[in-house]
Every structure is written in structure tokens, then in C-alpha cells.
Design a binder for these strands. Structure first.
Lengths: 226, 226
DNA sequence: CTTCAAATCCAACAAAAGTCACAGTAACCC
DNA sequence: GGGTTACTGTGACTTTTGTTGGATTTGAAG
């Protein structure tokens, strides 16, 4: 039923590996709000979302939240812990009711050993993730919050793969968690982009008014406008 | 001459793959200050440092620098571009005169196809890098500059693998580039840690006076001192 | 020993981001 | 429709970080 071949990790793998995969995969369900696994816990395995919405995040001591991804069906997560068997590097919770396939670390390793193409896919996917993290890292080091917000609205490059939810649908609180800041700051930055004419309010929702302007703001650090 | 087996990527690989590897590897030399490759350029391949010191960094439009790693012999770099063949994700320059082995993207791919153990090592190494980037990302989102500085001085976890240079040896300018800030701010934070008694000046150089205190500061966000 | 360039120290100021408090406004559910 | 809840708007204030400019120290080279 799930179309495994549409998942980049499993593209073009041998039929035998595919059937093996299906034997190994366990189906699990989570209620809205339920924790799928926690940061630091023993490896939860490799997850594939079949249905629902999953938040991947980290939290610091004082309860501030950093949302790394908001994932929809056919996205996978926890690839790193699944392959190295160490503790989960972040938390995962079901935002809405969610169904996932899970493959344990041990089973994944045996699959990787049996199908070379799967292993090659895995290398490519990890490399891709690496690039994305690097870009997020640069966002945090170099970009101001208005710039990060503009980038999120453009919703291309990095964010589109990790935040599978149009920014229009997100609350300011959620945007703040994605950008690594607080609600008020997002509110102010949002007002800024509206005043600068880069975004426009269309009734309740916010639409892009000046794509090029957003792009310019997202790329350069100099913060403009009120 | 180079002990290839000490490089995690090549640990335990077959003798035939190893000899293949040695055929493919080209030796190159760079003068102090020379650019090894630039961000965005066509893939430079897989690099292994034989001698010298290499700075891996990104730069934003306004010339601010973010040093990702400072690498010494037997460290490797550009693993991501080498495996996916896309453009280099960062710049690499030789800080001192430097000798490296280079393996082209095409050759690396053919090596990975011929030796399964090499491919498995590669997956594990990429996963490891992924964790490190994630930790750096969290440092940038959650930690204040004094906290990041404390972490750098503890010189464990992430930093030790990427900054193969004791922090004592670095100039404030260099520390600033690693922490993603400016020289003056590092100076202030350094004074702060000295005043708080976490670090001490021993003649010219700075030594750790209170390891636990540093650890506490590095972990919690609440900024203390002065 | 002198000289020069690099590195550091420091204070004062500017800008960005975080915090607090509270008022408005939509949405949702009896 | 009334009341509750979640989300938004906004001003005032604090803290942290970035910037500027100049004084001082240090180390290496001549």
C-alpha cells in the first residue's frame, strides 16, 4: 500500500530487499500530542511517516524550543541514530494523529548489508542532510530574524524539505520555534515585512507581495525597514 | 607512507581497495594562505591532510567569517561534495604550507562501489558529521557567547574533532570566527570568564581554573559573570 | 635595541533580540 | 449568544551583541 519506491532511501532497491524491508517494518500509531521518541533515549530506529504530521525538535534547559522539521507523509526521520545505533539526536512528537513505519537499528543494518543500492542511497541522503544542516547553521550565524523569516516565506531551499507546511498556516509561536526565537520577535519582524511591502495581508492570511524583495532581504544581512 | 588505516573512512578496507585508493589519490601542495577550493565551485573531491593546517569556513556577503573547522594531518574534508558531486559547501584554505591527497568524485564513487566496507564506513562517518552539525546548530540557537566560549575551552565533544588546535593557541580573531561573532565580543567574554575565576592567566597564556564551572556555564543558558 | 605590525584591552555607543505586561480578536464549543 | 481558549498586536524595558575608535602591549625582524 505504501509506495516504498517513492521514498528516496528505497528508490530502485532490489525486490528481495524490498520484501525484506516490508517484513522488518513495524506499523505504529500515535495520538495527537504523543511523544514518538525523546532526545537522548536509546535509538528508536528508522521512521517513515504514513499519515499525520510530526514535529522534530530540540529543547534547551529553559524550555525554549527549536523545531528542526515538520514532516508529512513519506518523509522519514531519525536516519542518523538508525544507522549508528546511538541515542536519538532530537525529540519527535506526533502533532496530529500519526501512523508510521519503524525499522529497528539492527534490521536496518542487516538491510544495508544485503543491498548495495540501499547503502548507496543512504550515503547520498545523509550527504544531502549534511548540506541542509550546514545551511541552517549559516542561517543562525549570519542572518537576522527578518532575513530568516523572509527565507521561510520563500519556502524554498532548505526549509521546503523540512517544513512541509506552508508558513501561512503556521502560528507565530510555531514560526518562532522554527527560526529559533520568540513569538513577539516574529510578530515584529512580520509587521516589518508587511510595512516594507514585501508581504501583504489578504483578509486573514498573509501572501507574498514582492518575491524579489524577500529574496534580497533573505540573502543580505543588512536589516532594512521598520 | 601515509597510514591509511588510521583514517576512519578507510579503516579495515580490503587490500585491493586500498591499493586502488593509492592509485587514485593525487598529491597536491599549497602555500600558506593559498585557497584549496572555494564554496560553490565544482566539486573538488575528497581531501586528506598529510601535512599542514587547513581552515574550513564560510563567509557572508559583508566579509564576516565562520570557521567550521581547523584541521591537522590525517583529518579529511569535503566528504559531502566528494560523494554527491555537487558544488563545495564551504571554502578551504591552507593556513600553513600544506600537503594533501585528493581523490576525485568519480574515483571515490568507483571505490565506494567496489568495497562495501568503505561504503559502510562512509555512512557511519556522515552520520557522525550530521550529529556534529546538529550540535553546532544548537550552540548557535541556544547558547550565549560566553557559553560557547566556555565550551570551546573545554574543547571536548564537537569542537575537539573540528578544531584540532588548542583554544589557547588561537587569537581572539580566530576564536571569534569559530564562535560566529566578532573579536571584541570574544575579548569581553574572555574577561568575563577570567573575572568569574573560570579561567586564569598563567603569564601569557590562559589556562582552565575551574573546569566544573566552565561546564556549568557551557550547559545552561543563564549568563553569569563579570 | 629599535621599529613595526599584529594582537589585545577597553570604554562608550548603537542596534538587535529577548522579556513582560496587557489589550484586542478570532475560533470553538456548549 | 456567551464564555472560554488560543492566537495576535503592541509598547516599554532589559540584555546581549555588534561597532567604533583609540590606547597599549607584544613579538618578530632588522
Amino acid at each position: 500500500m505504501t509506495d516504498w519506491h517513492n521514498i528516496p532511501y528505497f528508490a530502485n532497491i532490489s525486490p528481495s530487499a524490498l520484501s525484506q524491508l516490508q517484513t522488518y517494518a513495524h506499523c505504529r500509531q500515535f495520538q495527537a500530542g504523543a511523544t514518538i521518541f525523546a532526545e537522548g533515549d536509546a535509538c528508536g530506529g528508522f521512521f517513515i511517516i504514513v499519515d499525520g504530521l510530526v514535529r522534530i525538535f530540540r529543547m534547551n534547559g529553559e524550555g525554549r524550543l527549536h523545531t528542526l522539521s515538520l514532516l508529512r507523509p513519506l518523509a522519514s526521520f531519525n536516519e542518523v541514530a538508525a544507522v549508528d545505533g546511538h541515542c536519538n539526536p532530537f525529540n519527535a512528537v506526533a502533532v496530529t494523529q500519526t501512523t508510521v513505519w519503524v525499522i529497528s537499528h539492527a534490521h536496518l543494518i542487516s538491510l544495508l548489508a544485503s543491498d548495495r543500492l540501499l547503502l548507496q542511497n543512504y550515503v547520498q541522503q545523509l550527504a544531502h542532510q549534511n548540506r541542509d544542516y550546514l545551511e541552517r547553521l549559516e542561517d543562525m550565524t549570519f542572518r537576522s530574524i527578518p532575513a530568516r523569516l523572509a527565507k521561510l516565506f520563500l519556502h524554498e531551499t532548505t526549509y521546503a524539505e523540512h517544513i512541509t507546511e506552508p508558513p501561512t498556516k503556521l502560528t507565530q509561536e510555531e514560526i518562532a520555534a522554527i527560526l529559533g526565537t520568540t513569538r513577539e520577535v516574529v510578530g515584529r519582524a512580520l509587521r516589518g515585512l508587511l510595512n516594507a511591502g514585501l508581504l501583504r495581508k489578504k483578509g486573514r492570511e498573509i501572501v507574498i507581495a514582492d518575491r524579489d524583495g524577500l529574496q534580497r532581504l533573505a540573502e543580505t544581512h543588512p536589516t532594512a525597514e521598520i
